[in-house]
């Protein structure tokens, strides 16, 4: 399961991006797919072998309004499993709105409405029997501004699994906390002060703690809203390496204003402009040979 190339996270693109939009659907029904815990639902194509990729999140004609203001216009986008999909575009283009629609965080804002649909593993996010609390457990989120709870480091990670009753004993909880902190590459830095306040950590450590917290409730998808925009280059690099490692187990969608970051960490890139999805494709293609003029203008810094 561990890809040996994972350690070299600075490699901008893994060798293959085999899944094309047209083929992705097929994989969900491919019989010989392997089910890999702890993520139960998807096939797990290895980085180099399989030519097909399962789709985890699929938006169909998805539109979104804040009051009278339409923020998203008929978005059609497929997010492949266990890949990093970057959403880029100038401020106000709707990329964050789209991201926050995937775990329905926009529900919290009064006066919003939507049209069309987003499916998670073929299941509509907006169907009446969708439990939004359960949905948000399956789709974790990391925010732009690190937001650790005013609790100890341990409690920050332990609170989610405990509330969601994912563990039966203290022992299990401790294991899960340790595992999550290790996954977030934070364990070695905090293992001796787990009972200290999380607010005493540095900005980069706080953000990795928030990632650990999100991973602790065992999500399938992790949404990241400009996770490194408030961090210095070294902390940013750590977060990027982490994203690169996490994609072997999680489907990741990341919003970023940083073109280099999108190019470095993502497998696929979607360019949003004025509420529309202008272009989506493999990251190397988008950055070297975009089809649309607007995309090229944006990534070369001519506007935005």
């Amino acid at each position: 399961m561990e890809d040996p190339t994972v350690a070299r996270a600075r490699t901008p693109h893994p060798p293959t991006h085999a899944g094309t939009v047209g083929r992705e659907r097929a994989a969900t029904s491919t019989p010989e797919t392997v089910v890999a815990p702890p993520v139960p639902q998807v096939s797990h194509p290895s980085e180099s072998g399989s030519r097909e990729t399962a789709v985890t999140v699929e938006a169909t004609d998805f539109s979104f309004w804040y009051g009278a203001n339409q923020a998203l216009k008929q978005i059609n986008l497929k997010v492949p499993s266990r890949k990093v999909t970057a959403l880029i575009g100038p401020s106000g283009c709707g990329k964050s709105t789209f991201l926050r629609s995937i775990n329905r965080m926009n529900d919290l804002i009064p006066g919003t409405r939507h049209d069309g649909d987003i499916e998670l593993d073929g299941e509509s996010l907006f169907s009446p029997d969708q439990d939004v609390v359960r949905l948000r457990r399956r789709v974790g989120m990391v925010f732009q501004k690190s937001n650790p709870f005013p609790k100890s480091i341990f409690e920050n990670v332990a609170y989610g699994p405990r509330v969601n009753r994912l563990v039966d004993s203290r022992r299990e909880l401790e294991d899960l906390v340790e595992h999550s902190l290790k996954r977030a590459a934070l364990w070695d830095e905090v293992k001796d002060r787990l009972d200290k306040s999380a607010l005493g950590l540095s900005g980069g450590q706080q953000q990795r703690l928030c990632i650990a917290r999100a991973l602790a409730v065992e999500p399938e998808v992790v949404l990241m809203d400009e996770p490194a925009s408030a961090l210095d280059p070294i902390a940013t690099q750590k977060i990027e390496e982490l994203i690169y490692e996490l994609k072997s187990d999680y489907t990741i969608v990341i919003v970023t204003h940083n073109m280099q970051q999108a190019a470095r960490v993502s497998d696929r890139t979607a360019f949003f402009y004025l509420g529309e999805l202008i272009e989506v494709g493999n990251t190397d293609v988008i950055f070297t040979n975009p089809k649309k003029e607007q995309t090229e203008a944006y990534i070369t810094g001519r506007f935005g």
């Binding site: 775990n103 965080m105 919290l108 609390v133 359960r134 949905l135 948000r136 457990r137 974790g140 989120m141 925010f143 501004k145 937001n147 650790p148 709870f149 005013p150 609170y159 989610g160 509330v163 969601n164 928030c210 917290r213 999100a214 409730v217």
Partner: peptide, 14 residues
């Protein structure tokens, strides 16, 4: 900060 509230709800808290 509202981020803190969102952080809780993003974990699947009521």
């Amino acid at each position: 900060p509202k981020e803190l509230r969102e952080g809780g709800q993003a974990l699947g808290f009521t």
